[in-house]
Every structure is written in structure tokens, then in C-alpha cells.
Design a protein around this nucleic acid. Structure first.
Lengths: 341, 341
DNA sequence: ATCCGCGTGTGAAACCTTTCACTGATGGGC
DNA sequence: GCCCATCAGTGAAAGGTTTCACACGCGGAT
């Protein structure tokens, strides 16, 4: 940027002190209308643009929320981000979207970055369960809200009950008559994956199925490619032991599995019923419309941002809250033969 | 944030001047190893974290690239963003992802924001063709690279030849024997849409089809919902005049159309052949795998970021470049009956 | 003996904003 | 006629970093 006008230049031009210019910018009601207008004029003429860095330096805090998600390639997270952005915009804040890509290293990198930037606050879907780094940041005065992940009472969090979600999914499959069900997901170090698995097993137990009813198929990641690989694997199993249904830890996996089944001319749900998780928009548009566990994506983001803003703007009155949303099962053809025509 | 240590505190603790601390941070080779180590120690002990705002204030420029895209909900743009992020990370920069959502107002809002933040530079997929605001920013010394949009010689841009893309798509449909083809997209004020349409018409002309061969069906946006509406509309046409094939301006539209066809038990490609654009990952996973025009998404972003970084870091030697990539047609079942089993 | 250059290290100045204690003026209440 | 409260506006100080001209000491060349 070439030399641009500062408040001082504006003040000089308007014939007032720089304090007055600042007041026009930040608390216009304290300035007499005539003066205010004169200052506005000067700002216009000089094409003055406030320097956010200087402002931050002085106020000690930036006006940008950091949002760290596990995978921007997953529409679930972009929808969530849209919710965050809405809430932020209402409060005159902006959002910087960071993609940890499930890597603790990158997560750490972004946390450092946000710390250096003295971010307004941080919304994060943490890669691992216990993240000491986050506690350390909080100890140093940075507000952090966990997203899509519950937490202890000492901090704010917004999540969806993944155990219930897993239960819903598998209870539905069992109701459809399935007894050999596979859970597809991983790494299990991801909380969401672990919780959904717990729910799945609980549903099996409730239905009186043996422990072996839920078979765990681990994947290295939660994307379409991993799903396709799993699809191959399942297709290669002997039909007598092959699961008749799979519950995938997210929709990307489910779409991958589905794609592989379609490629091999296996029937869904006939040969294999599939249930996904997240109910992203593409789930309904899949080869066989996908049964999925819906989460209030945008609302999740919106609420998280609101909690963060409250925590930052009213530190005295703020009460930590752990908001937990309920998931909802959306049944489509991929798990219900009667629905397909 | 609570009081945190500054360079001065570090300097005091290490028994050096603050200039030396700054040197350790920015040009460590100029400091004697022993001193350097002592300073590093002090930084560690005090848990010193550089204040990015102060740094920016002094250097006059932030280390964050602004990326403004038309629609974060479209995987095309998140893939593009991933490419940008890679290139940025290599250069030690970060990226703030802004979503204009096709609204000129929001675009303007974000441009102001980035200007206030004295962004490192801006990568933008502009909403409208001529954007004076961008020229104004450039005149004031802000570097801007156009993404997914060609430009005049006076500035850098990275794009894919959308006319060729449109031509490829429609030439393919014509080769499949279609003579009543609809182009689905809008608003046509979006350059990409207009160019793809031009390409479509050119292909028709080359094949000797009458002008009326390509029928334009306008949509209010480029998303799945708009596609579904269009699908209804097409399904409602009398079979004798109904187009036998559609070329959609992007994959989201195509998926929407496809979804509606499937819902109505119309056969794709039998009753309607469909070609999309972008070849997002979900295209291959659709009800009927989608023929689409592939663009090098990540590479587009990566190259754009590189151009920007070159422009900012070597203003003297920098030569403006207009990089144009070639699109590629990926044929799948949605447009080719022989492929479906 | 002198001078030069080099490697290290120094600290004031500059970057631009916000805040806050303060000044003057005005008008109302007593 | 005096005091007080209120309003409008002032300008110095602070915030943390980078930069740059400069100082210092030492070895080697002249």
C-alpha cells in the first residue's frame, strides 16, 4: 500500500483534533453534528481507511474470530462455517477459516497463528480429545469454544449428541432386520467417531444382539476415497459373513462405499444397506439417496459464535454453557427397500 | 488476553537490547550463536508470543492473503481454496476465506475489510465483470489477482478457458446424437456462465445446428435447489419439444436436475442426458455418475497465490501474467447410454 | 602506528490508533 | 450573581514491533 491518510491528516483537514476524529469513528454521538459532518467530509476527500493493525495494537484484541475445522472439503464444515459467519457478521466481526485437515501439527500451527494475531477468540473442532494447548491458551486469556465436541463445565462448547446419533442409526438398521452390521470409520481417536461407535454398540445391546453384531471396519480418514476402499473390502468378503448393512461415521465415507457398490452392480439396500452421518446436501442427491443422521449444522456454528461473543464481551456475567443438540435420523432409500420404487 | 511479555521484557531477561531480540526473530544469522541462544531461552521462559498487530503496524502490511470466492458451499471453491492455502503456507502466509455468495454488496464489504486489514494481497472471483472497486484498490497499491476469470494485460489472472469448456460439453452431446439441447445457468451476468454459454453455442454452430438448437434456461443461482427447480420445469415440458440433453453451468445445478429426474423416474441419460461443469468429487458419486468438465481446481488456486506472492515480493521484476488452463471433459453415464450397464 | 572493514550489538524513532484526564463554554437552578 | 452539571472538543500517552544510523572492539592491511 502506498502512503495513505491517517487520522492526523483527517484531523488537520477538518480543523479538529485527532481525538475528535477518533470519536467520530467510534462514538459519533459524542460529537456535534456539524463537526461530525465536517470530519466525515474530510475522511471522504482523503479516502481515509482505518488501519486495523493500529487499532488492534491499541485495543489489544483483533476483531477476527478464528475457526479451526477438521476438513474444509467436507460440506458439513462449510455449512457450519456459514453459521459462524452469520453470527459474526451480526456482531461486526470477521472470521478466518483454518483447516487442520485432521492433523495435530497443522492444528497447532493455526493455534500459534491465532495467538500471534491476538484473535478475538477461537472456535475449534479439536483433532484429539485432550488438547493441552487449548487449556494453555485459555489460561493466557484467550477465549475458546469447542465445536462439535462436548466439554467439561469449565468451558463453553456446542455439540450434537453423537452417541444418540449412533444409536438412532443402528436401531433403525436393526428394525429393518439387519443382524450383521459394520461400523465404518476412523481414526477412532477422533471423538465423533468413537462416540458414534459407542452409540451403535449400545443400540445393538439394547436389541439383544450379540457383541459381535457390530463389526468395526477402521478407515484412515473420513473422506470419499476411504469409503471407496472400504467398499472394495466389503465387496470382497464372502457373502455369508459379509455385513448386510453399514453405518458410516460420515456421509463422505457413505458416499464412497455407495459409489463402489454401484460400480460393482451390487444393490443398495438389497445387498448392502447404508446409513451415513451429517446429512450433507449431497446425501440426498446420491446414486441411491442416502439415509443419514442430520445435525443442525449452521445452527451449531451460529450458537458457538454467540457463546464466544458473549464470553468475550461480558466476561463478568458470562456463564459457561455446554449446548448439546439432538440429532435426527433421515430415512431414505439407501437403508429402506420399501422406499425404492 | 492477559498481559503478555513483549520484546522489551525478553531483552531485559536476556541482557541484550530490544533490537537484538528483533534480530533473533527476523534475521537470526546476524546474531552471534551464544547470544541467540540466550535470547531463545528468554523467549521460552517468558512464553513470549510475537504481537502480529504491532508487527503489521510497523511493516505496513499483514501476512494474510484475502481470498474472496463466490460460494463456499460449492466444493469447487473449497478445493480452490485448498490450493491457495498450500501455496500460502509455503511462503509463511495465512489465508482468510471470504464468501461473497454472489452478492456485490458482500463482496464490497469484504474488500473494505481487507483494505482496513492491509491484507498482504487479494485473490478474488469477482461477482461482476467490471469491478471499479478493484481497480481503485490496485491504484492505492493493493495487489489483486483475479481467479477463475481472465483479465487484461495490466494485471495478473488465473482462469480456465470457459468457452472451450462449453464447447467440449456441447460437442460431446451433439456427438451423442442430441439436437435439442438446453443450457442451464444464471445469472448470465456471471462471466463463467456467459462464457460457457458462448462455447455451447459455438459448438452448435460448428456442427451446423440451427441457432435454436441451444435453448437457454435461466436460473437465479448456481446451486442444487435451483437445479431441482429447473428439473421440474423440464419435466413439465411436452415431450416433443422437451430438450433431450442439458448442459448445466456447474455441477450443483446438474446434480439438482438429476435429483429431480430420478425422483420422477425419468431415465438419465435416456430421457435426458446431463452434463455438468467443475467435476467436483460428488459428481462421480451421483445417482447417475455425472459427465462433467473438469477444471484443475487446486492448481488454479495454487498458481493464483504464487502470482500474487511474486507480485508483492518482487514488485520491480514482476511481470503480469494471464494464466489460462485448459478444461477437460470427463464422460460418465449421465450423458452416455453405452456406459450404463 | 594508523586506518579500514567486519561482525555484533544498541536504542531512538516511527508506525497509527484509542483512551482518558482535562479545558472551556453554556445554561439551569438556587 | 454564583455554582454545578453537561457537553464538545483537546492532545498527550500508550500499545509492541521493526528499522536504521550508529557505536564498539578487534584483526589485518598499509
Amino acid at each position: 500500500m502506498t502512503e495513505s491518510a491517517s487520522v492526523i491528516d483527517v484531523a488537520r483537514r477538518a480543523g479538529v483534533s485527532l481525538g475528535t476524529v477518533s470519536n467520530v469513528l467510534n462514538r459519533p454521538e459524542r460529537v456535534a453534528p456539524a463537526t461530525r459532518e465536517r470530519v466525515r467530509q474530510a475522511i471522504e476527500e482523503l479516502e481515509f481507511v482505518r488501519n486495523e493493525a493500529a487499532r488492534q495494537l491499541r485495543t489489544g484484541r483483533s476483531r477476527t474470530i478464528g475457526l479451526i475445522v477438521l476438513d474444509v472439503g467436507n460440506p458439513f464444515f462449510t455449512d457450519l462455517a456459514a453459521g459462524v459467519e452469520n453470527a459474526a457478521e451480526e456482531a461486526g466481526l470477521s472470521v478466518i477459516l483454518c483447516n487442520s485437515g485432521n492433523s495435530a501439527t497443522r492444528e497447532d500451527h493455526y493455534l500459534s497463528l491465532l495467538q500471534e494475531q491476538r484473535a478475538y477468540g477461537i472456535l475449534i473442532t479439536p483433532v484429539t480429545g485432550k488438547n493441552d494447548r487449548i487449556q494453555e491458551l485459555r489460561a493466557r486469556g484467550m477465549q475458546v469454544v469447542l465445536v462439535d465436541r462436548g466439554s467439561a463445565k469449565r468451558q463453553c462448547s456446542v455439540s450434537v449428541d453423537d452417541v444418540v446419533g449412533g444409536e438412532l442409526a443402528v436401531a433403525h438398521l436393526i428394525a429393518q432386520g439387519h443382524e450383521r452390521i459394520a461400523f465404518v470409520g476412523g481414526p477412532v481417536s477422533i471423538n465423533q467417531v468413537a462416540d458414534r461407535l459407542v452409540g451403535a454398540r449400545r443400540a445393538a445391546r439394547s436389541a439383544g444382539l450379540p457383541k459381535t453384531a457390530i463389526r468395526l471396519i477402521r478407515t484412515p480418514g473420513l473422506n470419499v476415497a476411504a469409503g471407496r476402499k472400504t467398499g472394495e473390502q466389503i465387496a470382497g468378503m464372502p457373502p455369508r459373513t459379509r455385513p448386510t448393512a453399514v453405518f458410516c461415521a460420515n456421509d463422505l465415507l457413505a458416499l464412497g462405499v455407495l459409489q463402489e457398490m454401484t460400480r460393482r452392480n451390487l444393490d443398495v439396500p438389497g445387498d448392502l444397506a447404508i446409513v451415513g452421518y451429517d446429512d450433507i446436501d449431497f446425501a440426498a442427491a446420491a446414486a441411491v439417496p442416502l439415509t443419514s443422521v442430520r445435525q443442525p449444522r449452521a445452527q451449531l456454528g451460529h450458537t458457538a459464535a454467540e457463546l464466544l461473543i458473549d464470553e468475550v464481551s461480558s466476561p463478568e456475567t458470562h456463564q459457561h454453557r455446554q449446548v448439546v443438540f439432538e440429532p435426527e435420523l433421515v430415512v431414505r432409500e439407501s437403508s429402506d427397500a420399501k422406499l425404492s420404487t
